[in-house]
C-alpha cells in the first residue's frame, strides 16, 4: 500500500490555480431588513434575504452577509450611478452605502484541489456549500468572504493587508500538491 510518489512540478498547476482578479466596484450596503426591498428597487438591485445567498441582476451581484448587511459588487463603470442612486434614495430610505472597493482583494481559486487548499485555513464545511452561495468566514485568522461559483471554482475576498499572509499559506498548500502529498 506504500507507494513512493515522485515529484511533478507541473502537477500543482493542474490541481489548483490561484489568481488575483481585476478589482470591481464594491459596496457595503446596510439598511433595516424591512426596508431592503424598497431600497433595492430604488437602487435597481436584487437583494437576497437569506444570509449567504447571492442574487444577480445584470452585472450587479449582491450577497446577503447579515440581517441588515449586503455586499454589492458591480463593474467599475456602474460605481458613480449607484452612488448617485443611493444619495437620491437616502432621505426617504435611510441606509448606508459605503464604497469599499479598495478594502478587499479578490482571489480566484480553481481546479480539482481548490477546495482542499481552502481546507488548510477554513474551519467550516466548504464541501457542503451550495454552488452559487457565499459566506463570510475566517481563513486562518483573517476574515474573508468565500464565494462558491462552481463545484471547483471559488472566489475569496481578503482584506488587503491580510493578503500576503493568506497567499503565503496558500502557496504552502500548493507546494503539497506539487509534492503529490
Amino acid at each position: 500500500m506504500t507507494t513512493q510518489k515522485h515529484n511533478d512540478t507541473d502537477r500543482s498547476a493542474v490541481m489548483i490555480r490561484i489568481e488575483e482578479l481585476v478589482p470591481q466596484a464594491r459596496f457595503s450596503l446596510r439598511v433595516r431588513s424591512e426596508r431592503a426591498r424598497v431600497l433595492s428597487e430604488s437602487l435597481g438591485l436584487a437583494l437576497p434575504v437569506r444570509i449567504g445567498s447571492v442574487e444577480r441582476k445584470g452585472e450587479v451581484e449582491a450577497l446577503c452577509l447579515g440581517p441588515d448587511e449586503w455586499c454589492v459588487l458591480a463593474p467599475d463603470k456602474r460605481r458613480d450611478a449607484l452612488i448617485e442612486a443611493s444619495r437620491a434614495a437616502y432621505a426617504k430610505i435611510p441606509h448606508a452605502f459605503c464604497d469599499v472597493s479598495d478594502r478587499e482583494v479578490v482571489l480566484r481559486l480553481s481546479g480539482p484541489e481548490a477546495l482542499t487548499a481552502l481546507t488548510t485555513g477554513i474551519a467550516r464545511d466548504i464541501e457542503s456549500m451550495e454552488v452559487g452561495s457565499a459566506a463570510r468566514t475566517a481563513f486562518d485568522t483573517a476574515t474573508v468572504i468565500l464565494w462558491r461559483d462552481d463545484e471547483n471554482s471559488f472566489r475569496m475576498d481578503v482584506w488587503r493587508s491580510f493578503l500576503p499572509h493568506v497567499r503565503a499559506l496558500l502557496d504552502l498548500a500548493q507546494a503539497e500538491f506539487a509534492a503529490g502529498l
Binding site: 452577509l65 447579515g66 440581517p67 448587511e69 459566506a135 463570510r136 468566514t137 475566517a138 476574515t143
Partner: peptide, 11 residues
C-alpha cells in the same frame, strides 16, 4: 451568555 458571529453575520 453572549457570543458574536464575528467572522460571519457579525451579529
Amino acid at each position: 451568555e453572549r457570543w458574536r458571529h464575528v467572522h460571519g453575520c457579525a451579529r
